[in-house]
Lab assay of single mutants.
Amino acid sequence: MTGIVKWFNADKGFGFITPDDGSKDVFVHFSAIQNDGYKSLDEGQKVSFTIESGAKGPAAGNVTSL
Rank of each mutant, 00 (worst) to 15 (best):
M1E: 05
M1A: 08
M1I: 10
T2M: 08
T2Y: 07
T2F: 07
G3D: 00
G3C: 01
G3V: 01
I4W: 09
I4Q: 08
I4D: 03
V5L: 04
V5P: 01
K6V: 05
K6N: 06
K6E: 03
K6T: 05
K6R: 12
K6P: 01
W7F: 09
W7A: 03
W7H: 04
W7V: 04
F8Q: 01
F8L: 02
F8V: 04
F8R: 01
F8E: 01
F8P: 01
N9T: 05
N9W: 11
A10R: 13
A10F: 09
A10G: 11
A10L: 10
A10I: 12
D11F: 14
D11Y: 15
K12I: 10
K12F: 10
K12Q: 09
G13P: 00
G13T: 02
G13L: 03
G13S: 03
G13R: 05
G13Q: 04
G13A: 03
F14D: 01
F14N: 02
F14E: 03
F14W: 15
F14G: 01
G15W: 01
F16K: 04
F16M: 08
F16Y: 08
F16H: 03
F16N: 02
I17Q: 00
I17N: 00
I17S: 00
I17L: 07
I17R: 00
T18V: 13
T18H: 08
P19I: 05
P19C: 07
P19D: 02
P19H: 03
D20Q: 06
D20M: 10
D20V: 06
D21L: 06
D21A: 06
D21Y: 06
G22E: 05
G22P: 03
G22H: 08
S23Y: 06
S23A: 08
K24T: 11
K24C: 12
D25S: 06
V26M: 05
V26Q: 02
V26F: 04
V26L: 12
V26I: 14
V28R: 00
V28I: 07
V28Q: 00
V28H: 00
V28A: 03
H29A: 04
H29T: 04
H29V: 03
H29W: 05
H29Q: 04
F30Y: 14
F30C: 12
F30P: 02
F30E: 07
S31Q: 07
S31K: 09
A32D: 07
A32L: 03
A32M: 06
A32N: 08
I33K: 02
Q34S: 12
Q34Y: 09
Q34G: 08
Q34P: 04
Q34R: 09
N35D: 14
N35E: 12
D36V: 11
D36Q: 12
D36W: 09
D36H: 11
D36P: 14
D36M: 12
D36G: 12
G37M: 09
G37P: 09
G37L: 10
G37F: 08
G37E: 09
G37Y: 10
Y38E: 10
Y38N: 11
Y38L: 12
Y38P: 12
Y38W: 15
K39M: 09
K39V: 07
K39I: 07
K39F: 08
K39P: 10
K39S: 07
S40W: 14
S40Y: 13
S40G: 11
S40V: 13
S40N: 09
L41C: 03
L41I: 06
L41V: 05
D42F: 15
D42V: 15
D42I: 15
E43G: 14
E43C: 15
G44S: 04
G44V: 02
G44W: 05
G44H: 06
G44I: 02
Q45M: 14
Q45T: 10
Q45L: 07
Q45V: 10
Q45H: 07
Q45A: 11
Q45K: 05
K46C: 13
K46D: 04
K46N: 06
V47H: 01
V47W: 01
V47L: 03
V47Q: 00
S48Q: 12
S48N: 09
S48A: 13
S48T: 10
S48Y: 13
T50A: 06
T50H: 09
T50F: 10
T50N: 09
T50D: 08
I51C: 07
I51T: 06
I51K: 08
I51A: 04
I51Q: 05
I51H: 05
E52I: 14
E52G: 08
S53K: 13
S53C: 14
G54W: 10
G54D: 11
G54F: 09
A55C: 12
A55L: 13
A55P: 14
A55M: 12
A55D: 12
K56I: 08
K56R: 13
K56G: 11
G57A: 06
G57S: 08
G57H: 07
G57P: 07
G57I: 05
G57K: 07
P58I: 13
P58T: 11
P58K: 11
P58A: 10
P58S: 09
P58Y: 09
A59H: 15
A59R: 15
A59T: 15
A59G: 06
A59E: 15
A60K: 02
A60C: 04
A60D: 01
G61E: 10
G61M: 15
G61F: 13
G61T: 14
G61R: 15
N62E: 07
N62W: 11
N62V: 08
N62D: 06
N62I: 09
V63E: 01
T64V: 15
T64L: 13
T64G: 05
T64A: 11
T64Y: 10
S65E: 10
S65K: 15
S65C: 13
S65H: 12
S65P: 15
L66R: 09
L66N: 09
L66Y: 07
L66S: 08
L66Q: 09
